[in-house]
Design a binder for these strands. Structure first.
Length: 583
DNA sequence: ATCGAGAATT
């Protein structure tokens, strides 16, 4: 990272106070030999805090390891800021700390997405004569990735290696590789893997699995299998994760023969499919509409002694919903409860989505009300799903009420919530509401092009072409390249308003900007010229379409047929229409 | 005693 120096972070540890924490200095004698079983004693934050207070009053004090164990337990319950507070208390009480403790605190800050505070712990290591370890920097790197500071994360790894601060291990490399892969930089992760192969720290199965999985997720199964073969050649011991990634990748491409091969290959290596393996297959089948096959796989897994879990059931439920059989999904939901598998918020979201897709909004709303009764809590996806469903049936008033409820008592709206709202408002002509909301959102720095596509589309469809165009222009000023949908939406807007020259120049512009038009773009522009009876120019685009292997859709072809009926001479100008089987 | 990879929802 640029300008990285320990001095910079000196004396900037934020004091996080906690009113819950009040320390008592009187010591209780005779606690020597008292054993503390942190895991059994701590079930919630209150338990942790009160145990901490008992511990600091003991004489002699419990070892630092016990404090570490306590903090670790708190981290597993996601009480990161409380870990920091208790650590501050320990310091005030001058309770000795060690390397492990500092690493845990550093990690807590990183998990809070406060890598700035995490860096401010570094001077403590120096002051206390404690050496940094790979663990320290791995946590920091993870923290930087969590804040999407990819360059800083990679730079920190390089700095650690270059300045011999400590020898990066497989975990540190793996953390960087994983951070890169999860953000779409598979090739960079692959380069790092190659770098490791030539360096001192040889990649292990974790490192390979990260890249194998990323390649599979990219749909690049061939490269993933090549890497698998490299692993075999290098005698890297393959494991269940390796095969699960490959099986998932094959399922998502519908390569069921490959799935079978991988299954037998892994079993030959004494690696047995687990609940994750089976669930991936079940989900893949469900997504292809083959829910019966998925249920068959579920039976087989039970026969093999592998019990389906909540995720397996959720996949099946979603499979039925995708086929429009929400009632069957509901039955699975009830079976799940009978088997004492508690539905989670995703189960509810799947069912709510199922009901919405069948326009059974009342059912969806009812289910929303039931969520808290069963000890779950609606999340952002729940509300987004309901909002979409309510808009779908045109109940804009209900949508507004639900959004208000969300703002009052619900989870934080995200970009998807806002897209749904804007799309809904525009769709039903509530332009004022939409524009107001869009202006409110200006400071959020949303950088997802599909969000702007919704806005541009809404403005175009509501006669606000100039505003749409200025949002389009804004994209380049915030460094967000328009995608094929953005251009197509703009072109549609121009065509609706009869601005064919603008439509045409936008078509050329997208090509120049490295974003070639697709089938839809051409259909839109052909329809535009057709509706304005500009047959000869239309012909140019029909020709271009044919050259690029695109074809007309039914509605454009239908329009064309009507035009030909009224004006047969059009046929003379468009030989492509009959010679290339365009209808 | 602290840091790592794989499954489901809008």
């Amino acid at each position: 990272m640029r300008g990285f120096s320990l001095r910079k972070y000196n004396n900037c540890i934020p004091f996080l106070s906690s009113s819950a924490i009040r320390c008592c200095y009187s010591s209780i004698k005779g606690n020597a030999g008292v054993t503390i079983n942190v895991e059994n004693e701590v079930k919630c934050l209150d338990d942790a805090v009160s145990l901490f207070h008992r511990m600091v009053r003991m004489n002699p004090l419990p070892s630092v390891a016990v404090f570490c164990k306590l903090f670790d337990t708190m981290i597993s319950m996601e009480h990161y800021s409380s870990v920091v507070s208790l650590f501050q208390e320990m310091r005030k009480l001058r309770i000795p700390i060690n390397e492990f403790m500092l690493n845990i605190v550093t990690n807590s800050y990183c998990l809070m997405h406060r890598s700035d505070c995490a860096f401010s712990v570094l001077p403590f290591y120096l002051k206390s004569g404690i050496l940094f370890s790979g663990v320290t920097f791995t946590s920091l790197i993870r923290g930087l990735f969590a804040e999407n500071r990819l360059k800083d994360a990679v730079e920190l790894l390089k700095k650690v290696a270059r300045e011999n601060i400590c020898e990066p291990d497989q975990i540190m490399y793996g953390t960087v590789m994983n951070g890169l892969c999860k953000r779409g930089h598979t090739q960079k992760a692959l380069s790092l893997l190659r770098l490791m192969e030539h360096g001192n720290t040889k990649p292990d199965v974790y490192n390979y699995n990260i890249v194998v999985d990323a390649l599979c997720k990219d749909g690049n199964l061939v490269a993933a299998i090549n890497l698998l073969n490299e692993m075999k050649q290098k005698n890297i011991l393959l494991n269940i994760v390796t095969y699960n990634s490959l099986i998932d990748g094959s399922c998502k491409l519908g390569q069921w023969e490959k799935v079978k091969t991988l299954f037998s290959e892994m079993v030959n290596l004494n690696i047995y499919p687990n609940v994750i393996t089976f669930t991936m297959v079940i989900d893949g089948l469900c997504k292809e509409g083959k829910v019966e096959d998925a249920e068959e796989v579920m039976k087989r897994m039970v026969e093999k002694g592998v019990e389906p879990d909540i995720i397996t059931y959720n996949a099946i439920m979603d499979g039925y919903c995708l086929r429009g059989q929400v009632d069957r999904a509901r039955r699975i939901f009830d079976i799940m409860i009978d088997k004492c598998i508690e539905p989670d918020i995703i189960s509810y979201n799947i069912l709510i989505n199922g009901y919405c897709k069948e326009k059974k909004v009342a059912k969806a709303m009812q289910l929303l009300g039931e969520i808290s009764q069963r000890g779950s809590k609606p999340n952002t996806v729940t509300y987004n799903t309901i909002l979409q469903g309510v808009f779908e049936v045109g109940r804009t008033g209900d949508a507004k009420k639900i959004f208000d409820e969300m703002l009052r008592v619900g989870p934080t709206p995200n970009i998807c919530t806002h897209s749904t709202l804007l799309d809904g408002y525009f769709k039903y002509g509530l332009v004022e509401e939409a524009v107001l909301l869009f202006n409110e959102l200006a400071r959020r720095e949303y950088n997802d092009v599909s969000f702007y596509n919704v806005v541009i589309n809404g403005l175009c469809k509501n006669g606000k072409l100039d505003e749409a165009h200025s949002v389009f222009e804004k994209l380049s000023s915030i460094g967000l390249p328009p995608d094929v949908r953005t251009y197509t939406t703009m072109i549609t807007g121009f065509c609706i308003h009869g601005l064919l020259d603008e439509a045409k120049s936008m078509l050329r512009k997208m090509e120049d900007n490295g974003c070639p038009p697709n089938n839809v773009t051409y259909r839109v522009i052909v329809q535009g010229f057709l509706r304005c009876s500009k047959f000869s120019e239309m012909e140019t685009f029909v020709k271009e379409m044919a050259d690029r292997g695109f074809s007309l859709d039914a509605s454009t072809a239908g329009l064309l047929v009507n035009v030909v009926r009224e004006n047969p001479s059009v046929l003379d100008m468009t030989p492509e229409l009959h010679s290339k089987n365009m209808y």
